[in-house]
Write a protein that binds this DNA or RNA. Sequence first.
DNA 1: CCCTCTTGCTTTAACGATTAAGCAATCAAG
DNA 2: CTTGATTGCTTAATCGTTAAAGCAAGAGGG
Lengths: 325, 325
Amino acid sequence: MVSIKQIASDMGVSTATISNALTGKGRVSQELVTRIQTRAEELGYRPSIAARALKTGQTGILGLVMPDLTNPLFPRIAQTLSIQADKRKLGILIADSRGSADEQSEALRRLLDRGVDGLIVVPQKGTTPDPMPVPVAVLNTASDPGNSVSADHSGGGALVARHILDIGHRKVVILGGDQVSEVQRDRIAGMTDALPSDIGVDVFWGDAGVEKSVAMVQTGATAIMTTSDLIALQVRTELMRTQISVPDQVSLTGFDDMSFSSIMHPALTTVAQNVDEIASRAIDIISAKISGNMPDHEGETVPMQLVVRQSTSIPNHIFSRRPPR
Amino acid sequence: MVSIKQIASDMGVSTATISNALTGKGRVSQELVTRIQTRAEELGYRPSIAARALKTGQTGILGLVMPDLTNPLFPRIAQTLSIQADKRKLGILIADSRGSADEQSEALRRLLDRGVDGLIVVPQKGTTPDPMPVPVAVLNTASDPGNSVSADHSGGGALVARHILDIGHRKVVILGGDQVSEVQRDRIAGMTDALPSDIGVDVFWGDAGVEKSVAMVQTGATAIMTTSDLIALQVRTELMRTQISVPDQVSLTGFDDMSFSSIMHPALTTVAQNVDEIASRAIDIISAKISGNMPDHEGETVPMQLVVRQSTSIPNHIFSRRPPR
DNA sequence: CCCTCTTGCTTTAACGATTAAGCAATCAAG
DNA sequence: CTTGATTGCTTAATCGTTAAAGCAAGAGGG
C-alpha cells in the first residue's frame, strides 16, 4: 500500500503538501498539484479511509436499517441507495432489525459503533427510533411525525379508489394486511376518504379478512382493494378456489407493483412507489444534514403512480345493462 | 466520545493496560481487568473502529457484491449474511454491480478502497472476478471453477426431474431463462442427466421459449420444467391464455421457491435453495480465510430441496387409463 | 544468598492521514 | 526602498488504538 509519506519522500516534498494537493485544500501551486496527481496515479495511491476517518471523524459510510431485509421493497431501495451513494463517494452498511424494536435499537447501535456518518431507517411498524447522535433519514409514511421521505401512501389509496369509482363500482371491499402498519393505515385512509358516502365500503384486515372479503362478493361487492400485491395474490387464489372470475365478477387491486404483478393472471392493477425518487431524496437529505445545511426538515412525500392492468374492469351489472361492443 | 486515554487517566493506569485489559491480550491482573471493564462500561466506552483499523489494518467489514440487488434472492442472502456477520462482529458493505462485468470490477475496487477484510461475490453471469488482494468467497454454482459455496443446482435439477418421472411423465419440456447463466445451465444439465434416454425431452430458452414450450403441450408433452419460478409464472399465464389447465393437462415446475410461489394458483412445485446454509458457510469460509486457516478450499455444495405443491400431478393419459380413487 | 523467571505494569513508537501554525520568498503599494 | 500582504511550502501535532520493548518487584531454584 502506497502512503502519502512515500509519495512525499519520492517527490521530495512534505506530506502536508501531498495531502493538500490531493484534497484541493491549503495552498499548492497549480503545477505541483498536477505533478503530484500524476505521480500518485502512477504509484496507484489509494487514501487510507481508516486514517482519514480517525483524523476527521468522518467515515463516509451510511447505515441502512430495515425491519426485514426480506421485505420485497428492500432490494430496490438498497439498489438505488447504493448507486446514489456511490456517486457521492459514500458506502452503505446494512443491518437487519429482524422484526423487533429491540433488534432495531441494537442494529442502530452497531452501525453507530462503526462510525457511520448518517442513518437511513425504515422503521419497524409502529415504532419511532430514538434520537441519534448522527443525522437520520426516516422512510415511513406521511402520518409518521418523524418521517423524512416517503411515498404518498394516502394519495396512492385515493388513486386506486377513484379508478374503481370511475369505472363504475358502487360497492367495494378494502382489505389490509396488518393494522399496526402506519403505511397500510394511510393507504386505507386514502381510499376511504376518496370514496363518496353513498358508496358501500367494508374494511377487513389480515388473513381472516381474505375469506371475509371474498364472501362479500356474494352480497354484491364488485371490487376488492388490497394494501399489498401479496395480499391481492392471496385473494386471487381464494377467488379461484371459489370460482369467482377476475375481473368479470370482481375487480382486484394491489399495492407496490411487485415483480410478479405484471406476470400473474390477470395482470394486477396496482399502485407503484417511485422507489428511485424516494431513495435519491433520502440520500440528498442525509448528505445535506451531514454537511450541516438543512436545519430541520419537514417530511417530504413522493407521489405514487396508478398502474392499470387487467384485474380491474367495469362491473358486471353495467355489462348486463349495456354490453360492450 | 470516551477514549482509552480518558479511562487511563481516570483510573491512573496507562493506556496500554486499558487496551490489554479490554482486548484480553498482554498481561494484566485479573482484578484490574474486571475493574477496568466495569469502569469502561460505566463511562460508556466504545472503541474507535477507525483507530483500530488504522493500527491493525483490519476493518471488520465484509463487502457484498451482487450482480443486481433486485435479484429476488438478494434479500435472503443479505439477511442471513447480515445476521451471521453480526455474530462475528463483522459489518456488511453492499455494492451493486449493475449487470455489467465492468461495473462489477468497479464495485469491487470501491469496496477494497474502503478496506474490507474480505469479499462475498455473487458473480455476473458468465464472469469470474479477478484475483483480489483480500479473501473472496464466490457464490455461484458447482461448474464454476472459482466457486466457494453454492446450492447444488445440478442436484436440484435431478430432484425435479425424478419427481416428474416418478409420477409418470414420459414427454417433457425444459425451459431456461438465460443461456449465459451457469446456474441455469447446471440446473438443466441436472434435469437432463436424471432422465432416462427413452423420455422425450425438448429444451428451450428465453422469452421465445415460453410459447414454444406451451406449443409442445399440443404435441403430447405433459410437463414443463423451468429454471425459475418467475419463468414458471410466465408459462402459467401463457397456459391460462391458451386454456390449458395446470396440473390437469400439464404439470409445471419452477426453481427457487420465491415469495409468490406458494400463493399463486395452483401453488407451484419448485426447488428451494437453502440460502441460510449457503450464506452461513460463506461467512465461515471468509472468516477462516481471513484468519489464515483454510489454505485453499474446494467449492462446497449445499443440497437443494424439492417442494411439491399443486402444480404437478400424475399426467392425464394415466388418469384416463386408470382414473384416481 | 544469588541468579533467573514470571508477573504486572509502563514507555514509546507507530499506523496514515489532516490541519493549524510558521516561515521564507515574491509581489504590490506607498 | 520599505512595508505589508500573498503565495507556496514545511513543521509538527493530533486523531485513538495497538504492540513491542522495557523495567521493577516478587517467586522459585540451586
